[in-house]
Simulated assay, not measured.
Amino acid sequence: MSQFPEAGAKAPAFSLARDGGGTVALKDFKGRKLVLYFYPKANTTGCTKEAIAFNGLKAAFAAADTDILGVSADAVSAQDKFKAKYDLAFPLGSDPDKAMLEAYGVWVEKSMYGRKYMGIERATLLIGRDGKVARTWPKVKVAGHAEEVLKAAQELG
């Protein structure tokens, strides 16, 4: 199992099915900054709050020349419904086979009420124009997170 990338590391390449059909790949963002955030499951409370927070700051991220991509293991059909329900203005990647999630070290063993299971660790990366990880947020708490990521994107220049 891979480790969560550290700042300065080259971001692992990926290509995923995305909402609305088609694919989304790391190379699509070449020369731009990218907020790559991982969330456990569409339409759950924390994931919905996080998506709405990033979406609400979409114009500010665009002004900072920064794109946003959300990724989960949900099927494309679930991503489509999630995006439509909350009118999200950024792409959602689908990784049901978890290859990309494993490459980024966010497919991890979790525990709830003493039961262990595999799931997605809520985490975010800010990838610079050079394709390298500029900043990381492992084990994200949703409140204030999108604003903190925006500030980092603005400072990255």
Rank of each mutant, 00 (worst) to 15 (best):
G8N: 08
G8L: 01
G8M: 09
G8R: 04
G8V: 10
A9F: 14
A9L: 14
A9C: 13
A9S: 15
A9G: 14
K10G: 11
K10V: 15
K10C: 05
K10P: 13
A11R: 03
A11D: 04
P12G: 09
P12D: 08
P12K: 10
P12V: 05
P12W: 06
P12A: 03
A13C: 12
A13Y: 08
A13H: 08
A13S: 15
F14C: 01
F14T: 08
F14S: 05
F14D: 06
F14Q: 08
F14H: 10
S15M: 13
S15W: 06
S15N: 13
L16P: 03
L16G: 02
L16D: 06
L16N: 03
L16Y: 05
A17W: 03
A17E: 15
A17N: 14
A17G: 14
R18A: 13
R18Q: 14
R18K: 15
R18G: 06
D19M: 00
D19G: 03
D19W: 01
D19T: 10
D19I: 03
D19K: 00
D19N: 12
G20A: 09
G20Q: 11
G20E: 07
G20K: 04
G21P: 04
G21A: 04
G21T: 08
G22V: 08
G22C: 04
G22T: 04
G22E: 07
G22F: 03
G22D: 04
G22Q: 05
G22Y: 02
T23G: 05
T23Y: 12
T23C: 05
T23K: 15
T23F: 09
T23P: 06
V24N: 01
V24K: 00
V24Y: 00
V24H: 00
A25V: 13
A25D: 10
A25S: 15
A25T: 07
L26D: 07
L26Q: 09
L26K: 14
L26F: 10
K27P: 01
K27N: 11
K27D: 12
K27E: 15
K27V: 14
K27C: 05
K27M: 01
D28A: 02
D28T: 06
D28G: 05
D28L: 00
D28V: 05
D28I: 06
D28E: 07
F29T: 13
F29I: 02
K30T: 14
K30A: 15
G31E: 03
G31M: 00
G31V: 05
G31N: 09
G31R: 04
G31Y: 09
R32D: 02
R32E: 13
R32M: 02
R32H: 14
K33C: 00
K33S: 01
K33H: 11
L34K: 08
L34Q: 02
L34D: 00
L34T: 03
V35M: 01
V35H: 02
L36F: 12
L36N: 12
L36M: 07
L36G: 00
Y37H: 09
Y37L: 12
Y37G: 09
Y37V: 12
Y39C: 09
Y39N: 08
Y39T: 06
